[in-house]
């Protein structure tokens, strides 16, 4: 299987062992380093990265992606790391990504505005989608319904739901690309 295949193609490839290995090779190091710097040891870092890959692979037929899986993986990693830090903090264990630092951290008005603005931009772009597309996007991203459920609710075929979602995401990405990469994590 050629390495040039996109993440999306690999996700659905029938030779799942090779596809998984290629995706693993593509992302493991960035994920691991991010986890290691935050959790401070190899065991915990490996735990969270394993969790991210396992959840990716278990859900691979349900994930809608444009070409790259990076936003999906890094968002998943963020939640895994933060919940790991949360669990440890409750036991009184401190890691480099420390609760003390969180308690110290301040968000300036500008930062908050920027954050809110980005969210608003995303919301605006979502609102600008055609009705049907917006509804599919909302059910998928906000209500976290499966494609099959969305299809049933809206009386559409599953394929139509998938196609609609793909187009919606593509449109959003194109519109948001000029703002900031952070936006891409929000959709």
């Amino acid at each position: 299987m050629p390495e040039s295949l996109t993440d999306k193609v690999l996700l659905l490839a029938t030779d799942e062992q090779i596809a998984f290995e290629l995706l693993y090779n593509r992302y493991w190091e960035q994920l691991y380093k991010k986890a290691f710097h935050r959790l401070g040891n190899s065991d915990d870092a490996q735990d969270v990265v394993q969790e991210v890959f396992v959840s990716l692979w278990r859900n691979r037929h349900k994930i809608e992606v444009e070409n790259t899986l990076a936003p999906y993986l890094f968002t998943a990693l963020k939640y895994c790391i933060i919940s790991q830090v949360y669990r440890k903090a409750k036991k009184g264990i401190t890691v480099p990504l420390s609760i003390e630092e969180l308690e110290r951290i301040e968000v300036s008005t500008e930062e908050l505005l920027e954050f809110k603005e980005l969210q608003m931009i995303v919301n605006n772009e979502v609102a600008n989608l055609p009705d049907r597309m917006r509804e599919v996007y909302r059910l998928s991203r906000i209500e976290h319904l499966q494609v099959a459920e969305i299809a049933m609710r809206l009386n559409l075929s599953e394929q139509t739901v998938k196609n609609t979602l793909t187009i919606a995401l593509k449109r959003l990405r194109e519109k948001l690309a000029r703002y900031s990469t952070i936006c891409l994590f929000m959709i």
Binding site: R38, K78, I81, I82, L97, E101, L102, I105, E106, V107, E111, L112, F115, K116
Partner: peptide
């Protein structure tokens, strides 16, 4: 915003 800033710090 606070949590994400902390996460990226």
């Amino acid at each position: 915003a606070r949590v994400e800033k902390w996460y990226e710090s």
